[in-house]
C-alpha cells in the first residue's frame, strides 16, 4: 500500500538517523541538527545543532506582536524527550 516501510511512528525517526532533522520543542524553541540516537521517550542526541528561540513580545490586543529570534549553535546535545512536540526528517523523495 504505502510506498514506504513505515508501520509505526518511530520508523520515521529510525529512518532519519544520521540525517539532519527539524525538532519543534515546548517553550517556542526549534532545533535543527544531525540525529544520532533516540529512545522511546523521544530523548534525542544530536550534533551540529542550531537552536532557534522565539521570544514574542507585546501581548496587548491591537498591537502587532514583535517576534524576537535568538539563535545559537551547539556541538553535541542531549535533548530530553518530554519537551519534544514534533520531529520532521529531511523530505524523502
Amino acid at each position: 500500500m504505502e510506498p514506504s516501510s513505515i508501520q509505526e511512528p518511530f520508523d520515521l525517526i529510525r529512518l532519519s538517523l544520521s540525517e539532519r532533522v527539524f525538532v519543534k520543542l515546548r517553550g517556542d524553541r526549534e532545533l535543527t541538527g544531525i540525529l544520532h540516537a533516540y529512545d522511546g521517550h523521544m530523548n534525542l542526541i544530536m550534533s551540529d545543532v542550531e537552536e532557534t528561540i522565539m521570544l514574542v513580545e507585546g501581548d496587548q490586543p491591537g498591537v502587532a506582536p514583535t517576534v524576537n529570534v535568538a539563535k545559537r549553535k551547539l556541538d553535541m546535545l542531549f535533548v530530553r524527550g518530554d519537551g519534544v512536540i514534533l520531529v520532521s526528517p529531511p523530505s524523502r523523495t
Binding site: L17, S47, D75
Partner: peptide, 27 residues
C-alpha cells in the same frame, strides 16, 4: 532528570556511529 531540558556533551567523547548502530538495534 525531569527538570533537564538539554545536556551539552563533549563531542570528542561521543562515537556517533556507535550511537546510531545501538539505536537501530534497540529500536
Amino acid at each position: 532528570g525531569s527538570v533537564v531540558r538539554y545536556v551539552q556533551l563533549p563531542s570528542e567523547h561521543v562515537d556517533t556511529q556507535l550511537l546510531e548502530d545501538a539505536t537501530r538495534r534497540e529500536s
